[in-house]
């Protein structure tokens, strides 16, 4: 069968090869809250175009890890390295603050479980999407608006509602808006904290499909924290299983879910109700 090759996809394809350096490396990341461990000695790498899932029960430290690797919470010890576009790998807690903040609003995205935390609720959907563009110097209203229209379309929202305030949208639509707002600057990695957490099951499924499509079409790397193994299976290439602040098992998603090795992973997998 003749298969047409598309350059962008071809790039992503080679990006997945082991020769390309990892985009993000966490080494021995440990975070203590007032002496209480949030996560301990967590090490992993994320390659370009790869989706890494972090699963575990609440309190297992998965959100702590996500915050530590996304420059939102400095670890007590350990390092987090990010492969910057121009200067190669850099320790995100040792680079200058302007450089780190620029990274956070251009090269990175962060999708919160509660869209209210990730959206600017007082301004319109269009302005929410355009904000990052304006933050990096876009000064042409027409172009910003066009980009906002394109992104509403990509996340399958009604472009006619561009000037509506976020609170007039449903939870699922707010989450789409949050995703569009993050992706408009073409980030290379997106951190997501329970992105489908607060949504109805029917809405969840569509959002999952959208996320999966965006991640693969854009060649995005992503780290997704979820307690939902079904979400993890559908979205992530690899999984980390966390328990009591430590990674107890890691591997390909279907390896971990189909053939769990650690007692805790086995318990987790066997506890899921299959409808």
């Amino acid at each position: 069968m003749a298969v047409l090759q598309c350059n962008a996809l071809q790039l992503r394809y080679t990006g997945m090869m082991p020769e390309a350096p990892p985009l993000l490396s966490a080494r021995g990341v440990t975070k203590y809250y007032e002496g209480i461990p949030g996560c301990r000695n967590v090490s992993f790498e994320v390659w370009p175009g790869e989706v890494l899932g972090i699963v575990g029960e609440s309190g297992s430290g998965k959100t702590t890890v996500l915050n530590c690797i996304s420059a939102r919470l400095e670890p007590t010890s350990g390092t987090v390295e990010y492969a910057t576009r121009h200067d190669g790998p850099a320790d995100i807690y040792r680079m200058s603050e302007p450089a780190r903040r620029l990274l956070m609003r251009t090269d990175w995205g962060f999708v919160h479980q509660n869209p209210r935390e990730g959206l600017r609720m007082g301004v319109s959907a269009g302005a929410n999407i355009g904000e990052r563009l304006m933050a990096v110097g876009a000064r042409h209203y027409g172009n910003i608006r066009q980009a906002a229209t394109d992104w509403l379309d990509k996340v399958e929202m009604d472009t006619g509602r561009m000037d509506d305030l976020p609170f007039t949208f449903s939870g699922g639509m707010q989450q789409r808006l949050q995703i569009a707002r993050n992706l408009v600057t073409a980030p290379r990695i997106v951190f997501m904290d329970e992105p489908t957490g607060g949504l109805d099951v029917s809405v969840q499924a569509r959002l999952l499909d959208l996320l999966r499509g965006l991640v693969s079409d854009l060649g995005l790397a992503a780290v997704i924290v979820t307690h939902d193994l079904a979400v993890a299976r559908l979205l992530s290439h690899r999984l980390l299983v966390m328990r009591r602040g430590e990674v107890v098992e890691s591997g390909l998603t279907d390896q971990v879910l189909d053939d769990p090795q650690h007692p805790y992973s086995q318990l987790l997998v066997s506890s899921v109700i299959h409808p």
Binding site: V123, A127, E131, M134, V136
Partner: peptide, 8 residues
């Protein structure tokens, strides 16, 4: 940049 959000 966010100041322009208001003008937008």
């Amino acid at each position: 940049g966010v100041m322009h959000v208001r003008l937008y």
